[in-house]
Amino acid sequence: DFPIVTRTDFSDTTFLLEILHPAMAKAAKPGQFVIVMVNEHGERIPLTIADFDRQRGTITLVIQAVGKSSREMQAECRVGGTLFGMVGPMGIPSHVSDAKKVICVGGGLGVAPIFPQARAFKENGAYVIGVVGFRSANLIFWEHKFRSVCDEFIICTDDGSAGLKGLVTQGIEGAIAEHGDIDEVVAIGPPIMMRACAEATRPHKIKTMVSLNPIMVDGTGMCGGCRVRVGGRIKFACVDGPDFDGHAVDFDDLMQRLKRYRPQEQQSLEQWDENCRRL
């Protein structure tokens, strides 16, 4: 069992858990993820390691409650409690290149995971431009954390309630226009956002890395459920990724496959709501 030592709620859908796991805190690198099981009946859900603290021996996860499993985590995971299962770090760590100037882009559930990457680039001596997207101002979190590792930090909100009004791609385009010498862009978020980022950088031929989030089961390369299409070839995101060249990724394929279990997910959520109401 894996003890939960901190919980912070950023909004009514997004929350942070810090889990005690000294060996994992020691091993974790930016870009890696864990697979968590809330309880014995749970599914195995992948979550990016949003931060790690080697001194305290902890792993930080930032979770968006979207369906049954993540809502159950939101309802049941408290300080003093435990997770039934947590395995990792999984996946090939992000390659922190020696790029001189990078844009690190995070949107939706990708805001937290982009943080360790931005920090790693900073530690590598790069000029880091952070671009993060939120729906509105009240959902913003980790602003000070980002500012401490970014040379420039651009917040975009859908409704314009803070920062730039618009999508992260506008933030990217602005930064590209301002700096003619961006070496690399790293984007993490929903597939539709990552695709838009890749399209924004394609004309400028700027290397763009994305972190893919297909449906996973084991996360060890054993089931093939996480297969994605990159450069016309099949890759298993859990062992060959999760980072890939955004210009080679078939995002339509990814988005199609993410819909695979929609009816079941709906059913599961409805039953969960029903049970919650009865209690």
Partner: peptide, 13 residues
Amino acid sequence: HAGDFPNYDTPLG
């Protein structure tokens, strides 16, 4: 235990 969905959370479809 997907055969016992939705008592277990993993779907099979």
